[in-house]
Design a protein around this nucleic acid. Structure first.
Lengths: 138, 138
DNA sequence: CATAGTATCTCTAGCGACTAGAGGTTCAAG
DNA sequence: CTTGAACCTCTAGTCGCTAGAGATACTATG
């Protein structure tokens, strides 16, 4: 049995964030001491580690809730969990695609202007003002 | 002179968002009709187009404010604008890098489990529970 | 056993960048 | 002149936390 601070140290999740996860139902309320302080056990540690890992991978709180529900109900198929992970993968890929386009465009914009001259001639500002100068969609 | 709805249609920025930009100082308050409705001119359209384009490229409201200030004060050097664009480029690149690592990991996780079996054996859930299974940092 | 200092508690408010809704007014077409 | 769409302001909600206030509890040392 350990305190919220200890749990925070072990999982690298900040204390207020742990309490936040409890309020939104991601973590079940743990036992309390006489003095009303939270005391966690191994199960609590494992669940928070799971959440942390999933958050690091960009899963939403909602998606994580679904995954936890699947953990807690082993009678349901694994397909649902795979679906969630696959959806997350598509999401990540879509973001990458969009960012790569932005990267190209920003590179062009940032390099077009060598930093000399006054803003009225600045390529950065001109490019932002006029979408037609862009080389691709975004 | 045209209404906020017309401006919205032309720029593809939603009406409440336009009003929001005004409250946070990105757009200067336009003229009003007798009946208190906003009326925009060409200058307003151009400024909003600039903002829209910059937002699409991921610039923050704050960064856009700085860029607009540079537009309005042509006596300042273009270097500042280039710096902002370059910072945005670094930001985008950092995000891409992180997402690519996530993509790899998610691909591994999502493919590890073929969807058969119950959650207690599910590779998705096992991978999320145990960070040690991961192939790289994230 | 007293005290000091850290950790914890709850509660509320704030962040960015909008979005949604209520309840009321104005505009433009017929 | 009436209808209905578009507009107005205001407040509150979204997501995933983060920060702060003010009060209480735990723990280590004298």
């Amino acid at each position: 049995m350990f305190s919220i601070g200890e749990l925070s140290r072990r999982t690298k999740v900040k204390v207020p964030t742990i309490r936040y996860y409890e309020t939104v139902g991601l973590l079940t309320a743990p036992e309390r001491t006489e003095g009303n302080q939270r005391r966690y056990d191994q199960a609590g540690l494992e669940r928070l580690s799971f959440i942390k890992h999933a958050r690091d991978l960009g899963f939403s709180i909602e998606a994580i809730s679904s995954l936890i529900e699947l953990q807690d109900h082993p009678d349901r198929s694994c397909q649902a969990a795979t679906d969630i992970a696959t959806a997350q993968l598509s999401d990540v890929r879509a973001k990458i695609k969009k960012l790569r386009a932005l990267e190209k465009e920003l590179l062009r914009i940032a390099n077009g202007c060598d930093g000399d001259g006054v803003p009225e001639d600045c390529y950065v500002l001109a490019s932002l003002a006029n979408h037609d100068l862009c080389q691709q969609e975004h």
